[in-house]
Structures are given as structure tokens and as C-alpha cells.
Simulated assay, not measured.
Amino acid sequence: MHAGRGSTATVNIDRLVHNVHEQGFAALDKVGINGQHDQGLVSTLISRDLSGSDDLCVSWGRILPGQHHLCHHHPDASEFYVVLSGTPIVHLGNSTYRAKPGDGIYIPRGTTHGITNDGDETVELIVGVSKPADWQFVPDE
């Protein structure tokens, strides 16, 4: 290893590597403006608490057929989605977009966004947020 290019310190692999199939999923728990419940599942893979990350959070998201991830925004963080399967409607600002597997979608800080799975296939996606934890979720519906 070249000097200044990294560390040869011992790392805790158990803290740095997490597997979605071993961790499982938790239901989204946010509430909308009129008391409606956010829908979908999430498995956090990289975060401040899990990995010691100081700059990002990465999760595996799952939106089942008929579910809607509430439109919301983050005033303090940007976000991205990478669609792995399914063809959800992605709400971005005042536009909608029919996503497909392989799409990378960037959501700038403050932009309203959400997902509707109006299809018969489960939507699987990788979700990243530019903060490791404690970002604000502000419902827009």
C-alpha cells in the first residue's frame, strides 16, 4: 500500500458489511399530513449507527404492489434511488416519471418526492441519503 493512500489499521468487518437477506426489512413508519401511513419496507445497510458512517446512509427499499411511499422532502439532505426491479411511478416535484430497472434517480435537497407502485411486481430499489442519520422527513401530502 502506498503511503497516504489508505490505512492498514484493523477494521471491524462485522460493522462495515451488512446483508439485506440476513437483516430483513422493517415497515416505513412516517405519517402524512392527514394522518395517512407511509407504505413500504426498508433494510438499512450503511448508516451512522450500523457502520459508523459520517457522510451517507444506504438502504434497500421494497414497495409492494398497491403501496405508496408518501410524497415528502428533506430540507437537509439529497437522496437517490436506483431501481432494481418493478416499474413504479416516481413523483419528483410537480412531475411524475415511470421508472424502470436500471434507472438512477437523483433527488436534490428540498425536492418533493415519493413512489407509487401501481403494478403487479414488487419494486426493489437502493436508496441513498447524503446524511448518515437524523435527516428531516417533511410530509408534502
Score class of each variant (00 low, 15 high):
residue 7 S to F: 06
residue 101 P to E: 06
residue 116 T to F: 02
residue 126 I to A: 12
residue 4 G to R: 03
residue 103 D to Q: 05
residue 51 S to P: 00
residue 16 L to D: 06
residue 1 M to G: 15
residue 49 D to H: 12
residue 99 A to Q: 07
residue 120 D to P: 03
residue 92 L to H: 07
residue 52 G to L: 04
residue 37 H to R: 14
residue 7 S to C: 07
residue 23 Q to L: 15
residue 60 W to I: 12
residue 59 S to A: 15
residue 80 F to G: 05
residue 56 L to N: 08
residue 120 D to K: 09
residue 5 R to W: 13
residue 126 I to R: 05
residue 22 E to G: 05
residue 67 Q to C: 05
residue 95 S to T: 15
residue 49 D to K: 12
residue 11 V to R: 12
residue 98 R to A: 11
residue 36 Q to G: 08
residue 93 G to C: 09
residue 68 H to E: 04
residue 23 Q to Y: 12
residue 58 V to P: 02
residue 48 R to D: 12
residue 70 L to A: 01
residue 82 V to F: 12
residue 41 L to M: 11
residue 133 A to S: 15
residue 55 D to Y: 14
residue 54 D to C: 00
residue 31 V to G: 05
residue 79 E to W: 01
residue 131 K to F: 02
residue 61 G to Y: 07
residue 43 S to F: 03
residue 90 V to F: 01
residue 64 L to E: 15
residue 65 P to H: 08
residue 103 D to G: 02
residue 52 G to S: 03
residue 122 T to R: 06
residue 17 V to S: 05
residue 83 V to Y: 00
residue 7 S to I: 05
residue 114 G to W: 01
residue 126 I to E: 04
residue 94 N to W: 02
residue 101 P to C: 01
residue 23 Q to E: 13
residue 27 A to V: 08
residue 88 P to N: 08
residue 2 H to Q: 12
residue 13 I to R: 14
residue 49 D to G: 06
residue 133 A to K: 15
residue 54 D to N: 07
residue 44 T to Y: 05
residue 90 V to C: 01
residue 81 Y to D: 00
residue 123 V to E: 11
residue 141 E to A: 12
residue 58 V to I: 15
residue 131 K to P: 01
residue 48 R to L: 07
residue 32 G to Y: 10
residue 105 I to K: 04
residue 28 L to C: 09
residue 4 G to L: 02
residue 104 G to P: 01
residue 19 N to Y: 13
residue 27 A to L: 10
residue 135 W to S: 14
residue 86 G to C: 04
residue 85 S to V: 03
residue 16 L to G: 02
residue 104 G to S: 08
residue 35 G to H: 09
residue 60 W to A: 13
residue 135 W to T: 14
residue 91 H to D: 01
